[in-house]
Design a protein around this nucleic acid. Structure first.
Lengths: 180, 180
DNA sequence: CGCCAGGTTGAAATTCTTCAAGACAAGTGG
DNA sequence: CCACTTGTCTTGAAGAATTTCAACCTGGCG
């Protein structure tokens, strides 16, 4: 009945994903520095998905007892931890919306906006963008598009002057319009 | 730092959904009898989505104090409640996969399988199917398809002898193949 | 009887995928 | 230092999946 362990991402970029028979992969979440994972994961018998790093990461493991003690003695921390799971769930819902009813262009723009805000929140993004160490294939598996179509849609965003994406760095050139 | 209230679905069928500017709607989860919702929802300032009943429902509200007391004095219950949020999250991930990388046929089949198992678990489905009080438009908003395409894909499932869906009742005619 | 929401159909237009090939950049071994 | 490999990005063109529009059908219900 106690959490079995917690991992905290300190540096780097990782993702949760599932692989389907046939080799298709769907990324279901990104983990950025400051994100916590597997708060209660051992409660379920098996993990339903995989976590993979997309860049070199440094990760801290916090002992189950430490977590339990924190949650028992520091209600503010306990509250914050419960909030993170709510936020994760809300984000996941937004991802269902993203792949469920947005066009290719909107999906990518939405993803970039989400990441800009999340990286910004932990001081890893300026107003002009952030490092995004993923391949276009990764983005395709995130947005539910083929890599070819993703590539073409990225070019469209570039041509429109909204973003630049070269060498693992995403630059946001027109935040208001990207957001719109 | 305490849960502010809990709702428990006793009878009926409901869903979580989000509405996008432009009127498009995406259903992100179904609630069947036995499902609990909003365990910690008041921790976040605002609700990021809407809950709607799809049939007449009876719902029980459990007082925050009751929940807090339960969780304090009955570790087994606390554990079970935390497990439900993990299961909800895993289900949500599966929905991302569903709309992200499955064909129309697979999406619908997967949804029906999920619901069959969930209804079966609470004794509301026989081996032959269950009551599913939704319109085709609802299913379209669930699977991220247009209602026209959903309609045609449903017909395909019928023609293949996998299901029958008339009058709010879904009959499963060939479980192994539907599942496959 | 007539209305109405939901279901069904056809056809055209669009979006997206697939296949296949070529360009480019970085890293490796000779 | 060069040739070579490898992974990623880019492009074109054909074809498949899906959406849109618009019409028509149907059964339940006031």
């Amino acid at each position: 009945e106690k959490p079995k362990g917690v991992f905290l991402v300190m540096e780097g970029f990782a993702c949760r994903h599932k692989i389907r028979a046939g080799g298709r992969r769907q990324i279901t979440a990104y983990l950025v520095p400051g994100d916590i994972c597997d708060l209660d994961v051992a409660l379920l018998g098996a993990m339903d998905h995989t976590i993979t790093t997309l860049s070199t990461c440094s990760v801290v493991r916090i002992e189950p007892d430490t977590v339990a003690a924190l949650m028992d003695h520091h209600p503010q921390v306990a509250r914050a931890l419960r909030m993170t799971t709510l936020v994760d769930e809300a984000t996941l819902r937004e991802w269902v919306v993203n792949v469920g009813c947005r066009s290719a262009l909107e999906r990518i723009a939405h993803l970039f906006c989400e990441l800009q805000i999340r990286f910004h929140a932990v001081g890893l993004a300026g107003d002009d963008g952030f490092d995004l160490p993923v391949t276009q294939a990764d983005l395709a598996d995130t947005t539910g598009l083929s890599s070819v179509h993703l590539n073409r849609t990225l070019q469209e965003l570039r041509r429109a002057g909204l973003i630049a994406f070269r060498g693992k760095r995403l630059r946001i050139l027109d935040w208001p319009r990207l957001r719109a």
